[in-house]
C-alpha cells in the first residue's frame, strides 16, 4: 500500500470520498492548532522573543511523531517512504530565500499562513487581515514570477531526503532528529524560565511531557532495531 487515495487518479465517486477525508483531516488540523494556542498572535511570536516556545515544542513534536510513524511503517513494509518523499523536491535557494521572507512576515503579521486561518476561525481581525495579505502576496508573486527568471528553480536537488544526503538509513536519521528535538525542548524551557524570571511561572510541564519524551525515544530505538527486518525499504539511505 502506498496510499489509499492517490488523489489525482480517482474516479468521481472515490474523489468525493477523498475530498470528505480532506475536510475531516482539516478539522483535526484546525482543532489541534487552536487548542495548542496557535490562533493567538502573541503566543506564536513568543517564540521569537524567548517568552514562549510553544511553536518549537508543538511543531517539532509533531514532526518527529509523524517522521517516526513513517519510518516505522516503512520498515514494516506498509508505507513507501520514497513515494511520499517524491512530493517534496528540494529547490535550495528559493526555499532559503522564501523561508527568510516568510519568517519576517510571520513576526510582522503574528501568524503563518495556516495559523492565520485558525485565527480567522476564532474571530481575530488581525487573522483575517493576514489571510487577505497572503492572498494578495500570492498574486503579487504570480505577476512578478516571469521577472525572477531561473531563480525559483535554482538549487534543484530533486527529492533529496536527509538520509540520502547524509548517507545514513532513515531510522538512524530519525533517531538523531529525536535527540536534537528533545535537546531543543530543554533549551527552550530554560530560556523561557530565564526570560520570565522566577516570579512568573511558565506553564507546568508535568508527567505527560516525561512520558512523551520516553515514548519518542522508545519508538526511535524500535525504528533503529527494525533495520534488522527484511521487509523494510528504509534501510537503504
Amino acid at each position: 500500500m502506498t496510499t489509499i487515495f492517490p488523489i489525482e487518479a480517482l474516479s468521481d465517486e472515490r474523489r468525493a470520498l477523498g475530498m470528505a477525508v480532506a475536510v475531516v483531516v482539516g478539522i483535526g488540523f484546525g482543532f489541534v492548532l487552536e487548542r495548542s494556542g496557535f490562533g493567538r498572535a502573541q503566543k506564536l511570536v513568543g517564540q521569537f522573543y524567548g517568552y514562549d516556545f510553544t511553536v518549537l515544542k508543538v511543531m517539532f513534536t509533531a514532526i518527529v511523531t509523524a517522521m517516526l510513524g513513517l519510518v516505522v511503517l516503512s520498515s514494516a513494509g506498509v508505507v513507501d517512504l520514497a513515494a511520499i518523499q517524491f512530493n517534496y523536491p528540494t529547490y535550495l535557494w528559493p526555499m532559503i530565500v522564501g523561508g527568510l521572507l516568510l519568517g519576517a512576515g510571520f513576526v510582522m503579521s503574528g501568524y503563518c499562513p495556516g495559523t492565520s486561518l485558525v485565527a480567522t476561525a476564532s474571530g481575530k481581525l488581525d487573522g483575517v487581515s493576514t489571510v487577505l495579505g497572503v492572498v494578495a502576496g500570492g498574486l503579487v508573486y504570480a505577476h512578478v514570477e516571469p521577472a525572477l527568471g531561473a531563480f525559483p528553480n535554482s538549487g534543484k536537488l530533486g527529492a533529496l531526503s536527509l538520509s540520502a544526503w547524509l548517507g545514513l538509513p532513515a531510522p538512524i536519521v530519525a533517531a538523531f532528529v529525536v535527540a536534537i528535538a528533545i535537546a531543543a525542548f530543554l533549551a527552550g524551557e530554560r530560556i523561557e524560565r530565564m526570560v520570565a524570571g522566577a516570579a512568573e511561572a511558565v506553564a507546568p510541564t508535568g508527567a505527560a511531557r516525561k512520558w512523551i519524551f520516553v515514548g519518542l525515544v522508545a519508538v526511535a530505538l524500535a525504528g533503529v532495531a527494525m533495520l534488522a527486518l527484511p521487509t523494510g525499504t528504509s534501510a537503504a539511505p
Binding site: F29, M59, I63, V64, A66, M67, L81, I84, Q85, N87, Y88, P89, T90, Y91, L92, P94, M95, V97, G98, G99, L100, L101, L102, A104, G105, F106, V107, M108, S109, G110, Y111, C112, P113, G114, S116, S129, T130, V131, G133, V134, V135, A136, G137, G138, L139, V140, Y141, A142, E145, L148, P152, L157, L160, S161, L162, S163, W165, A170, V173, A174
Partner: peptide, 30 residues
C-alpha cells in the same frame, strides 16, 4: 506581513504547514 508571506510561500513552494511541517516529517532537505 501577509503579503510578504503569500509571496514567500509561492517562492518556496509551500509554507510552514506544507513545507516545514509536512516536508520536514518526510525528511526533505529543502
Amino acid at each position: 506581513g501577509g503579503v510578504v508571506m503569500g509571496f514567500a510561500a509561492k517562492l518556496s513552494r509551500g509554507c510552514t504547514s506544507g513545507q516545514a511541517l509536512s516536508g520536514g516529517a518526510a525528511m526533505s532537505v529543502g
